[in-house]
Design a protein around this nucleic acid. Structure first.
Lengths: 237, 237
DNA sequence: AGGCATTTGTGAAGACTTGCACAAATCGCG
DNA sequence: CGCGATTTGTGCAAGTCTTCACAAATGCCT
């Protein structure tokens, strides 16, 4: 069980049959483009220019064009991009055509909120099971779904075809949960616990740490207050 | 009110008196180092090597040393870093000595969870006020604090010295809320709504989009399932 | 006091990412 | 049919970030 490595850019396709060799930075922006495109489609737009889509997604238009060019040529010069076609292509690349089953582990404050969050379902993810290690919480209904005990995880993951696990436990439980998820066959983990997870090669981990986001903002606040000369750069988003 | 620009690296200090010129990538990692250092301190370690701290923080040791070297020389060759001293230095740089007051807007599912999340308080942030636009929710007690109406925001932000706003509203309300926060004097925003915010220069925005994280994982799942040859790279964290 | 093992701090190379600027392609219109 | 306006796709250069590799510094042990 190796310590996970830092993000390594460039998703090689090994010259295989179907798939593009997307830079990791591009992959991270595609979902944002997709969201903007859905908004445009809802607003009745059939086509959109790189400039228009870039603005809607909060990026530079040259960057947007380069990102999309990695998927192939789906724009028309002098016109722009076909909104429906581009949605189709990005969903294809992101693998969003098959609805993915997700297991959510840790039904505390955050877990409750995630279980009820409509944004997952509306964007192609199905929360297929809820788990907690606390037997007092097992059986509780959250958003119409019963909480199950961690000991069921292997069976449920197999039965439901779950490939993604979301960890919303305290930090001290997260590694054990990750090990259980991996043992059950999960190959992608979204970790909300404030700790680093060790996972085997072949398992992807993304981490979201709410306090870290605030601390980064704190740095910029601090800088602004001690140094009033320069305008702030907008960070991330 | 300009469209915000993409992350621009390098936080210039303008040659001013006090402050280091930290690369943005370094700033984003400092909170992770800080968390790891607190763990080490709790475990009774007085010093730690770059290798040890790097492992605990999930990064390469050379990267860690370069990051820390930007803060100055606080290590001892042949020995390592003094844990307490380094904690002190990083907290200084991140501006965590003064507790920062945070306003949380949007007390729905996610807002409730954030209001109750202990990780904020334990890492130096004080949730000073809760707001919602729904008058039916105003007055409700969440974690011992009453929800107030958005119309109070200007007065409360001034009274409580709030500098950071957290937006946990639906996407269609987020821009209005951001405008209100900025008008009230907030200069940093953490946005959980799935949309791009336009803010004036001088205001920092960071975005956390839970569905986007899953979609990025989905891409890697998709890639793994269509291409079984290569081992996956671990993404982000 | 001297030598050895350890570990930091950093120069340099390489990889990745961004953004400009423009040729090539397309459409609409006279 | 041809021309001008528009917009994509991309070569290239600049900037940023990561990683290696090693000299310099430190402490321990004899």
């Amino acid at each position: 069980m190796s310590q996970q490595r830092a993000q390594s850019s460039g998703v090689a396709s090994g010259g295989g049959p179907g798939f593009p060799d997307l830079p990791e930075a591009t992959v991270a922006r595609l979902p944002e483009y997709l969201r903007a495109l859905h908004n445009l489609a809802d607003a009745g737009h059939d086509t959109v220019s790189s400039e228009g889509l870039a603005t809607a997604a909060g990026v530079n238009s040259a960057k947007l064009r380069k990102d999309l060019s990695h998927l192939g040529s789906y724009g028309t010069r002098g016109v722009g991009y076909d909104v429906t076609l581009l949605i189709e292509q990005i969903e294809q690349v992101l693998g969003l055509h098959e609805t993915r089953a997700v297991a959510l582990v840790g039904i505390g404050n955050l877990g409750h909120a995630l279980a009820r969050y409509a944004g997952f379902a509306s964007r192609g993810f199905h929360i297929a099971a809820l788990f907690d290690a606390d037997r007092d919480r097992v059986g509780e209904l959250v958003n119409g779904m019963a909480v199950r005990h961690m000991s069921d995880i292997a069976a449920v993951v197999a039965d439901e075809g779950i490939s993604i696990g979301v960890i919303a436990t305290p930090a001290d439980a997260a590694q054990v949960v990750a090990d259980d998820l991996v043992a059950a066959g999960v190959t992608s983990i979204l970790n909300f616990a404030p700790c680093v997870l060790a996972v085997p090669d072949g398992v992807d981990v993304r981490k979201v740490d709410l306090a870290i986001e605030l601390q980064i903002l704190s740095f910029h606040e601090h800088r602004k207050s001690t140094l009033t000369a320069l305008p702030a750069k907008v960070v991330g988003q």
